[in-house]
Design a protein around this nucleic acid. Structure first.
Ligand SMILES: [Mn+2]
Ligand SMILES: [Mn+2]
Ligand SMILES: [Mn+2]
Ligand SMILES: [Mn+2]
Lengths: 137, 137
DNA sequence: CCTAAAAGTTAGCCTCGGCTAAACCATGAG
DNA sequence: CTCATGGTTTAGCCGAGGCTAACTTTTAGG
C-alpha cells in the first residue's frame, strides 16, 4: 500500500462489508436468525439499500441467501465477522478506558475501528491489559 | 444524529472535503501556493479526479479557482482547514504517545481523525497534556 | 520566437451506496 | 379460504468519487 490515502480508500471499500457481516453474526447470536429487516432497523437505511448491499456481499462470498429466507454467513463471512467483532470491541473498550461516555465510545468506535492497523490495535490491547487508562494518565 | 450509523455516513460525506482543505492549506504554507498537481501527487489520484473534487469544493464554498491559476481557500475553507489540522495533529500525537511507529501514526490518524468526536478529542488532549502515555501505561 | 513538455480541462464512463415506488410472496386473523 | 398486512424483491433514479482519453493552455528551452 504505497500511499497513505490509498489505504484510507481501501479501508472505506471494505468498511460496509465489515459492518454488515459483524451485524449479521451478532443478530444471529442474539435472535437465532438475521432477516433483512433487522439490518434495515440497525443501519437505518431502506429495504432497497439492504438488498443491494447484501447482493454485493453474496457476490463477494461473505453471505448466502435463499428467497424469503433469513441471511446466512459463509465461513469466510464468519471469519471476517469474528475478526471485526474483536477489533471493534478493543476499540470500544479502549475509548471507554480513555474516559469518554458509553454513548461516545459506541458511536466513535463504529467509525474508528475500520482505520485501526494491527500495530495500533496491539498497542490498544496492551493498554487495556496492563492498566485501565483513566487512573494511569 | 439519531442513529450511530447515520453519523458514520455523515462523517464520510465530509471527509474528502476535510482532507483537501487541510492539504491545500498545508501546501500553501509550505510552497506559497497550491496547484492541482500537488494534490494529484499527494492523494495519488488522477488529474480528472482532483478536478472533479475541487469543483465540488468550489460548489460548497471552500475553495475558489481561476483557470490555470493556483487554488485558494475561502475564509470558510481556511476555518475548516485550521480545525482539521488541529484535530489531525492531536490524533497523530496521541497514537505516537500510544507507542506506535511514526509511519503507523501518520497512516492511521489520516482515517481515524474523521471519526473522532469532540468528547474523544478532548480526552486525547488531556492524555497528551498530563503525561505521555508510554510511561504511564 | 517556436515548439515540446507540463499543467489543466473536458467528455464520457464506471461502481458504490443511497433513495422511491411498485410488485411480489407468505401468513395469520377472521 | 380469503385477504390484509408485512417482509422481500425489483426497477429505476441519483450523487460521490474514481477512471481513461482527448483536448487546450501555459511555460520553458533552445
Ligand atoms: Mn463500523
Ligand atoms: Mn487530514
Ligand atoms: Mn484524513
Ligand atoms: Mn472512515
Amino acid at each position: 500500500m504505497a500511499n497513505v490515502h490509498q489505504r484510507i480508500r481501501s479501508d472505506h471499500a471494505t468498511e460496509i462489508a465489515e459492518d454488515y457481516v459483524e451485524a449479521i453474526a451478532d443478530i444471529i447470536t442474539r435472535n437465532g436468525q438475521c432477516r433483512a429487516n433487522d439490518l434495515v432497523r440497525l443501519f437505518d437505511v431502506t429495504h432497497a439499500t439492504v438488498n443491494n448491499t447484501v447482493a454485493r456481499l453474496v457476490r463477494d462470498g461473505f453471505v448466502t441467501t435463499e428467497p424469503y429466507q433469513p441471511l446466512d454467513l459463509t465461513s469466510t463471512g464468519k471469519t471476517l465477522a469474528r475478526k471485526c467483532r474483536e477489533r471493534h470491541e478493543v476499540v470500544r473498550a479502549f475509548l471507554l478506558a480513555l474516559g469518554v461516555s458509553d454513548a461516545t465510545a459506541i458511536a466513535d468506535s463504529e467509525g474508528i475501528e475500520h482505520h485501526v492497523s494491527q500495530e495500533t490495535l496491539i498497542a490498544m490491547k496492551q493498554v487495556l491489559d496492563t492498566r485501565s487508562l483513566p487512573d494511569g494518565v
